[in-house]
Design a protein around this nucleic acid. Structure first.
Length: 219
DNA sequence: CACTCGATTAACT
DNA sequence: GTTAATCGAGTGA
C-alpha cells in the first residue's frame, strides 16, 4: 500500500532504484519537493522544474567517474532514494537525488523548482525582502528557487542533510497527481566543461518546455 | 605541503 | 561581460 502524506503520494524506493537515470531525471519533473524544518515543523514545498543526470563510472562529469570514492561522494554509492548534498565552490550546497542500485553511483541534480508553499521562509532564507504580500505567482522572483545553489538555500538544506531519506521526514518527494510533462526540453549539463567535450555533448539536462522556473542557462 | 579547480551566485563594470 | 567568495578533493612535489 502506497504511503500518502498530506494527500500526496510519497514516491517509493522502487521509483529511485530504476537503472535508467536519464528517464528518472525526466520523471522527477512535476514532482513536489518537500522539506520540513525540524522543531518548528515549517513546511517548504516546490515543484521540480529542472534536472540533470549524472550516470556513474562511465560519465566523466560524475563525481564517481572511474570509481572515484571519497567521504564527499560516498552517498552516491548508496541505493537510490536518499539525498546526496555536497558543497560546490566552497559556498553552495547542491541537492541530488541518488538513483539506481547500491554500488551504482548515479544521481539527479535538482537545479530549479516552482515555489508552492512556505514562500515567506523562502524569501527569508534567500535574503530577499518579502514585500509582495498578495502578489500572485507571476511576480515571484525567479532567483528565489532557480539555480541549484539558490534552490537548496530557499529550502534551508545544509550539508548535514546529506544522506536524508527521500521518503521523509526531513526531505520528501511527492506525487500530487501532476503528470510528467508531455513536452520536455533538453540541453547540455551546466558547468562541466572540465569533464571534456564528450560529456558536454550529452543533452542530459531536462526541463518542461516553456516553463519560467529554470536556471539562467536555458535558451 | 602547496598548489589548482570546480555540477555557482551576486555584485560589479 | 568579469570577478570575488570560499573549501574539499585531487594532483604532484
Amino acid at each position: 500500500m502506497a504511503v500518502v502524506l498530506r494527500g500526496m503520494r510519497v514516491l517509493p524506493p522502487s521509483f529511485y532504484r530504476q537503472p535508467d537515470t536519464m528517464q528518472l531525471a525526466r520523471q522527477l519533473l512535476g514532482k513536489v519537493l518537500e522539506v520540513v524544518e525540524p522543531g518548528t515543523g515549517l513546511v517548504t514545498r516546490g515543484r521540480i522544474t529542472e534536472t540533470e543526470a549524472y550516470v556513474g563510472f562511465d560519465d566523466p562529469a560524475c563525481h564517481a567517474h572511474a570509481g572515484r570514492r571519497s567521504p564527499r561522494n560516498e552517498m552516491m554509492y548508496a541505493a537510490g532514494g536518499v539525498a546526496y548534498i555536497y558543497r560546490c565552490y566552497g559556498i553552495h550546497n547542491l541537492l541530488n537525488v541518488v538513483t539506481h542500485a547500491s554500488g551504482e553511483p548515479h544521481a539527479v541534480l535538482l537545479r530549479a523548482a516552482e515555489p508552492l508553499e512556505g514562500l515567506q521562509a523562502m524569501f527569508e532564507r534567500r535574503g530577499i525582502a518579502f514585500d509582495l504580500p498578495s502578489a500572485g505567482d507571476r511576480v515571484l522572483p525567479k532567483r528565489l528557487t532557480c539555480g541549484p545553489g539558490s534552490l537548496t538555500k530557499a529550502f534551508g538544506l545544509e550539508l548535514k542533510d546529506n544522506g536524508a531519506d527521500l521518503g521523509g521526514p526531513r526531505i520528501a518527494i511527492l506525487d500530487d497527481g501532476t503528470p510528467v510533462p508531455e513536452r520536455i526540453a533538453t540541453g547540455p549539463r551546466v558547468g562541466i566543461s572540465g569533464a571534456g567535450p564528450a560529456a558536454m555533448a550529452k543533452d542530459w539536462r531536462f526541463w518542461p518546455e516553456g516553463t519560467r522556473w529554470v536556471s539562467r542557462y536555458v535558451p
